[in-house]
Write a protein that binds this DNA or RNA. Structure first.
Lengths: 200, 200
DNA sequence: TGCCTATCTGGCACGTTGTGCCACTCAGTC
DNA sequence: GACTGAGTGGCACAACGTGCCAGATAGGCA
C-alpha cells in the first residue's frame, strides 16, 4: 500500500499502458491477427521493450484479467489466523463486486472472445491456474492438508471462472459477484446431479 | 469400433508415432528445448508433415493425455437415456482403471513436468478444458440446464485432474482410479472447509 | 561539477515457429 | 496408359521471442 520508488511506479504505468493497448486490439481482432509490433506501437514502446514486460504476446492482457485475483490475495494476507476456507466465498464476492468498472468492461470484451480465439483461451486458462495455485499455497500455509487445500482451491477458482464466463456471456444479466455467490453456494454444498444426487 | 479405411488407419498410426516421439522427447527435455525438427526426425516424417497432424508443436502429446477422456466419452455415448450426472463418477473411475499401462507410464512422466515446464502446463490445461467442454455438451444434450451442466462438468473434470496430478506426484501411491473415486466423493458431497463447513 | 554505477531502452541479428504454395509420389479407376 | 485424389516434402516467408551491444537517464559520492 506504500508509494513505491519512482522507477517502480514508472514501470507499473508502462505495464498498464501495454495491457490496455493489447486489450483494445485483442477485443477487435483475434490474437493471431495482432502482431507484437502493433501492440508496442500503440503503447509507444519498441518491440524489444514489450518482451521485457511480458514473456509472450498474449500475456500482455494478464494484468487486466488478474486484477481481481490480486486484490483478494491481499485481503487474505491481511486476514487473521483463523480457518480461512469458510470465508473464501464472501471475500471473493466482495472483491469481485468492487472491481473497477472500466476493467470490468474490458474483461467482458476479452472473455467473450475466449470461446472463439484459441490463444485467448490459453491465457484465460493460465490466469485461472495461476490464481488457483496461489490460493492453494495460502491455504497450505494456514494449515490445511495438501489434498484438502487442492480441492478447496480448485472448486473456488472454478466457481469464479464459471461466474465470470456466465456473466460475460449474458450482457443483460446479474453482476459477477451476485452470480459468484450463487455458484459458490451450489458447489460448496455439493453439486446437484453428482454422486448420490438425482437431478439431470 | 469398425475397422476404418486403410488411409484412415495409416493416418492414425502416424499420429500415434508422432505422439510417442514427442512424449519421449518432452519427458527428458523441456518443450522449449525440443524443436519440431527433432520430433519429426524421430517420427520419420518431415517438419511440414508434422504440422499437418498437429497445429502446435506441444499439441503432439495431446493424444496420450486424452486417451482416457476419449474412452469415457464413448461410454457415455453408448449409455441409455436416463439421468447421466449420477453415473459420471463410476464411469470415469472405470475408464481410468482400464487405462493402457504403457500410456499411464508416459502420462506420469509428462505430468511430473507440468509443474516446471510452462508450455507443458499449457497443453495440460487445454486438454482438460477440451474434456470439460465435451462433457458439458453431452450433459446439455441430455437435458441438463446450462448452468447445471457447466458446474457438473467443471467439478468432474477438476476431480480427474486433481486425481491424476496427485497420482503423478506420488510414485508409490494408489492407482489413479482409486484416488479419483475419493476425490469425487469429496467434491460431489460438498467440499470440506467451504461455505458453512468448519475444517481448515 | 564531474565521475561512476545501475537500470531502462532500442536496434540488430539470429534460430525457431507455423503456413501458403507447388511439385512429387502412390493408390485405385476407367 | 491416362486420370483422379489424397498424402508428403521442399521452399519461401512473416512473425515470434531472445541474446547481445550501444545509448540514454537518474542517482550517489567526492
Amino acid at each position: 500500500m506504500e508509494t513505491q520508488t519512482l522507477t517502480a511506479r514508472r514501470r507499473a504505468a508502462t505495464e498498464r499502458e501495454i495491457a490496455e493497448a493489447a486489450a483494445a486490439l485483442f477485443a477487435e481482432h483475434s490474437v493471431a491477427q495482432v502482431t507484437a509490433e502493433q501492440i508496442a506501437a500503440r503503447a509507444g514502446i519498441s518491440v524489444r521493450t514489450f518482451y521485457r514486460y511480458f514473456p509472450r504476446k498474449e500475456d500482455a492482457i494478464a494484468p487486466i484479467l488478474t486484477a481481481g485475483a490480486a486484490r483478494w490475495q491481499a485481503a487474505f494476507a491481511e486476514a487473521g489466523d483463523g480457518p480461512l476456507g469458510a470465508r473464501i466465498p464472501e471475500v471473493i464476492a466482495a472483491q469481485l463486486g468492487s472491481q473497477n468498472p472500466a476493467d470490468l468492461d474490458t474483461m467482458r470484451a476479452l472473455l467473450s472472445g475466449v470461446e472463439s480465439d484459441a490463444e485467448l483461451r490459453d491465457v484465460w486458462l493460465r490466469v485461472n491456474d495461476d490464481s488457483e495455485r496461489r490460493l492453494r499455497e495460502i491455504l497450505r500455509d494456514r494449515g490445511s492438508a495438501a489434498l484438502d487445500a487442492r480441492m478447496i482451491a480448485a472448486v473456488s477458482t472454478e466457481a469464479i471462472r464459471i461466474a465470470l464466463e456466465q456473466w460475460a456471456s449474458d450482457p443483460g444479466g446479474a453482476r459477477p459477484d451476485t452470480i459468484a455467490v450463487d455458484v459458490f453456494a451450489c458447489l460448496s454444498a455439493g453439486v446437484p446431479g453428482l454422486g448420490v444426487g438425482d437431478r439431470s
